[in-house]
Design a protein around this nucleic acid. Structure first.
Lengths: 114, 114
DNA sequence: TTGACATGCATAGAATTTATATGTATAATC
DNA sequence: GATTATACATATAAATTCTATGCATGTCAA
């Protein structure tokens, strides 16, 4: 998990998964790689962490799974973002943005001079 | 904890506390109020959540406590940011920024048209 | 003067969450 | 035929976190 704190990884996991699926259907193994690339190797998800998230999101009806197959005929479980997932993603992004704004606001306020 | 997810609150708690102390010494009760104000009431910390964080940060030598007193003579435990805490805050801000950048990057990438 | 509320700190332990190890299986590559 | 990469899954140990509770004092109104 490199230098990124557990909390930060946890807070960003769901928005990241939903964002990735918003770009198009994908599956577990590929999502892990996409996250690694997107973070320039700074975020390494363990598969044992992602699958439970995917299952949770599916149970929440934010995403939907279906079995497909790779070029080589091997099977894969793909996930598709559902409408509710798109809405949830918007909410999560807004919330992230709010907290980001708080952090920026207080970063800007300096004590005394400077 | 309102609409903000537990994870988001957890991920932002330490940077927020350190940021607040960077502006000047403060104490538990006041920090809780500062967070509420900073978030326009969207983030409400329970005291039972903050004190353990403060104690942890002190044990990590990122902050330092001392007893002081309010105008009315009542005692208060103030916290001061230490040099190590300033450094840690920079690291946390960088990490937050990195994850924020990931989220923005993927938000920008749209599937097909649009 | 007493009851309610705000201020202020602290922690035990229940409840929840998370990480890790482990299991299964197939394809590709060496 | 051995190893690595791909691919999914989950039980459970381990860690974290929330909540309730406790204590104490000041203020203010009734």
């Amino acid at each position: 998990m490199s230098i990124l704190s557990k909390d930060l990884v946890a807070a960003s996991a769901t928005p990241l998964v939903l964002s990735i699926l918003k770009q198009g259907d994908s599956y577990g193994y590929a999502i892990i790689q996409q996250v690694r690339e997107l973070s320039d190797g700074e975020m390494e998800w363990a598969d044992g962490m992602l699958y439970p998230i995917l299952h949770r999101l599916e149970k929440q009806k934010l995403i939907q799974s279906y079995w497909g197959k790779a070029e080589n005929g091997r099977k894969r479980k793909y996930y598709r973002l559902r409408a509710a997932g798109t809405n949830e993603l918007s909410r999560l992004r807004e919330n992230w943005q709010r907290v980001h704004a708080m952090l920026k606001k207080i970063e800007g306020v300096q004590p005394c001079s400077t």
